[in-house]
């Protein structure tokens, strides 16, 4: 028994202090996929029923609603297209680099990490779909997290709210740069080392800055919730709420960056 305890402790410390286990892990993790697949079956079935057993009236109604929505979005998009090209022209005038359009891939949530202290999910796209470690994951409302390991047909996504995660951002209103880190709470993020003199108020939108090269720039990350300024402390305590619906989104977007080579994709 003592031997087994010792082996477990050695395994744990190897896993924590070195990277030796991670290549092995990406192979072994394939074994976990069937379990998540099985537990996903009931919701899949419900989804199937929702999709295929619908009355004609509801379909027509839904179709009408969607078309209306599409029209509105398209009108907005027309404006966007003009703005986009104008932006490029202005940037060219200023001799700065062109903005790149990111390509996206839609993935579906397969499972959630069962450990209550870990904010990780498993999605149903992997090496086969050219998913790579470090890839940004979004939903319709903002940045969710990044891919931390990939297997053949699944990938693990670490959320921005996990307390092992931090992301460089800037304030959309004035461009001040800062870093947002997770605290292990799904509804709040902490801004680290905010000087007391920094211009930040509740309601400010924090946008990914792309510094550090991991996340694409310009995606909304969080909205400032509270700014607590204490003159006795060197830094203010600022909390923000993620704009992405981390608890609800079932479909997520994986962002591919142009010319980006995977940071250690396993075959």
């Amino acid at each position: 028994m003592l031997v087994l305890v010792l082996i477990s402790l050695i395994l744990l410390s190897i896993g924590h202090y070195t990277q030796w286990l991670s290549p092995i892990r990406s192979y072994i993790n394939v074994f976990s996929t069937p379990f998540y697949w099985v537990t996903n079956l009931p919701s899949k079935t419900v989804e199937w029923f929702d999709e295929y057993i619908v009355s004609r009236e509801t379909l027509i109604k839904k179709n009408r609603q969607l078309r209306k929505k599409l029209l509105i979005q398209q009108t907005k998009l027309q404006k966007m297209a003009a703005l986009y090209s104008e932006n490029i022209r202005l940037r060219e005038l200023m001799n700065s680099s062109k903005l790149l359009q990111d390509e996206v891939l839609i993935a579906e949530l397969m499972g959630i990490s069962p450990d209550p202290k870990v904010h990780k999910v498993i999605i149903n796209k992997g090496v086969l779909d050219k998913v790579y470690v470090g890839q940004a994951v979004l939903d319709a409302f903002g940045l969710m997290g990044q891919v931390v390991s990939v297997t053949y047909n699944t990938a693990e996504v670490l959320f921005i709210t996990d307390n092992a995660h931090a992301i460089p951002v800037y304030i959309n209103r004035n461009g001040v740069r800062t870093v947002v880190e997770g605290v292990g709470d799904l509804y709040s993020l902490r801004l680290s080392y905010v000087p007391n003199t920094m211009d930040i108020v509740a309601g400010d939108l924090l946008v990914s800055s792309g510094l550090g090269g991991r996340f694409p720039a310009g995606y909304p990350v969080a909205r400032v919730d509270s700014v607590n300024y204490d003159p006795g402390q060197p830094f203010s305590t600022v909390y923000a709420k993620p704009t992405a619906q981390l608890n609800r989104s079932r479909h997520v977007l994986l962002v591919f960056r142009e010319g980006h080579v995977g940071l250690g994709t396993t075959q």
Binding site: M1, L4, V5, I7, S8, L9, I10, L11, L12, I14, G15, H16, L21, R25, I28, N29, F31, S32, F35, S113, P114, D115, V118, K120, I122, E156
Partner: peptide, 25 residues
């Protein structure tokens, strides 16, 4: 029990040895 723990760690995507340790004890 230890083997179960190791498998559990693989499935739960937690660090290797995490629940193996507890289950052995």
């Amino acid at each position: 029990a230890w083997c179960c723990g190791l498998l559990h760690d693989i499935i739960e995507l937690s660090p290797m040895g995490y629940s193996a340790l507890g289950l052995v004890v």
